[in-house]
């Protein structure tokens, strides 16, 4: 069954092919490119079935500090301030242990490290979608 996936990633111009199998499987993507865009798109995110999230994101504005991993701060805000329970799959190069711990505490469903084969990403995302259903 086709689902809606919010993909929060600033490098979609470069790595867009990684979600091709998911698109061919019928899933719809909403692409958000920075922290600001994400926090302004809460209504759309609430409608989504899954969030695919990178840790290293531009803030999108300079009058707010997001720290070294804006993706992590965005997720914290989505969970703790806005009460969002949407399943999250993190797709990132960041492997730091303290970041992993914080992600687990924020109830991410899976952490996928780049580079990943598109077929593997599809498998991991669809497992989470199935579990969510």
């Amino acid at each position: 069954m086709a689902k809606t996936i919010v993909w929060i990633e600033d490098d979609t111009d470069i790595i867009d092919p990684v979600v091709r199998p998911l698109e061919l499987a019928g899933h719809t993507f909403i692409r958000l490119r920075n922290a600001k865009e994400t926090l302004e798109a809460l209504d759309r995110i609430r409608q989504a079935d899954l969030i695919l999230l990178d840790m290293i994101l531009p803030p999108g504005q300079l009058d707010r500090e997001f720290g070294r991993y804006p993706g992590l701060e965005v997720l914290r805000e989505l969970r703790e301030v806005h009460g969002l329970k949407t399943p999250v799959v993190v797709l990132t190069v960041v492997t730091r242990e303290e970041v992993q711990q914080q992600l687990r505490a924020l109830h991410v469903a899976d952490i996928v490290y780049k580079p990943v084969r598109p077929s593997e990403l599809r498998k991991r995302v669809e497992q989470v979608l199935a579990a969510g259903s």
Partner: peptide
């Protein structure tokens, strides 16, 4: 450490593009 992380990020992003395109073409 921060510099290495930036460099790793840039390389991994490019590598992701290569791997994604290659597998999609193969399939």
């Amino acid at each position: 450490e921060q510099h290495l992380e930036k460099v790793s990020h840039e390389l991994q992003t490019r590598l992701q593009a290569v791997i994604a395109r290659a597998e999609n073409m193969m399939l």
